[in-house]
């Protein structure tokens, strides 16, 4: 078994309104920053042990499917690194 950190990034699907990101963008503009867009995402860093990186990624993928993301509105990515 090897120790890994799986990073799951969950973001709204393209085209799904993100009022929090819009509000954050507006606030940055009020502070005088110039920007043309802003997207936000949730990032989960999961420490786990697995036989190999594929097994770690598969487990993190299932975590995203079953809880961390809502497939109706979210896309997600999984990246695995040895710890």
């Amino acid at each position: 078994m090897t120790d890994y950190t799986a990073t799951v990034t969950v973001r709204l699907k393209r085209g799904v309104l993100d009022p929090e990101a819009e509000t954050t963008k507006d606030a940055l503009e009020r502070l005088g920053f110039e920007l043309s867009g802003l997207r936000s995402a949730d990032r989960f860093e999961i420490d786990l042990s697995a036989d190999d990186a594929d097994a770690a990624a598969a487990r993190a993928d299932e975590m995203a499917e079953r809880l961390l993301a809502n497939p109706t509105i979210h896309d997600y990515e999984v990246a695995v690194e040895e710890r």
Partner: peptide, 17 residues
């Protein structure tokens, strides 16, 4: 209910935030 899959769709942040 929607998170549990009892009904279709999702309820998320109001457009007004």
């Amino acid at each position: 209910g929607s998170e549990a899959g009892l009904t279709p769709g999702a309820f998320t942040t109001n457009a007004s935030a």
